[in-house]
């Protein structure tokens, strides 16, 4: 169910997270910790969006998990391929 307070605070929280992760854009080669941090921030943003703005927290459990899985699966993939480019290259060379 939509919750007035949740919508508003999620919005503010997501804006803050965006501003924080944008500060990392200055460095052209982010450190491993920075990559990890940005991916976690992105997952949190996805969570907030799905649970509070799309209002799936207490409903449509299967759909909610399918949406969350998008972030829980894709972001670790993004993180791993960026941290281990060598392995990614080997795995994807035909």
């Amino acid at each position: 169910m939509l919750n007035y307070k949740n919508i508003f605070s999620s919005w503010l929280f997501m804006l803050t997270l965006t501003l924080i992760s944008a500060t990392f854009a200055e460095s052209s080669d982010p450190s491993k910790m920075a990559i990890l941090f940005i991916c976690i921030v992105t997952i949190i943003k996805g969570n907030l969006l799905i649970d509070n703005l799309m209002a799936l927290r207490h409903s449509l459990h299967r759909i909610r998990w399918m949406m969350l899985a998008y972030f829980y699966i894709l972001l670790p993939i993004i993180m791993l391929t960026i941290i281990f480019p060598e392995t990614t290259r080997q795995l994807t060379t035909l």
Binding site: I7, M14, L15, T18, L19, A22, A25, K45, L53, M54
Partner: peptide, 30 residues
């Protein structure tokens, strides 16, 4: 080298705007 040449300000502003628009549309539904 790529990300450094992009307009990060535009990317960030658009992120903020899309999140805000999501907030608006959630308000419309509620």
């Amino acid at each position: 080298a790529g990300p450094g040449t992009l307009n990060t300000t535009a990317g960030m502003l658009n992120t903020l705007i899309l999140i805000t628009s999501s907030f608006f549309v959630a308000k419309a539904v509620s």
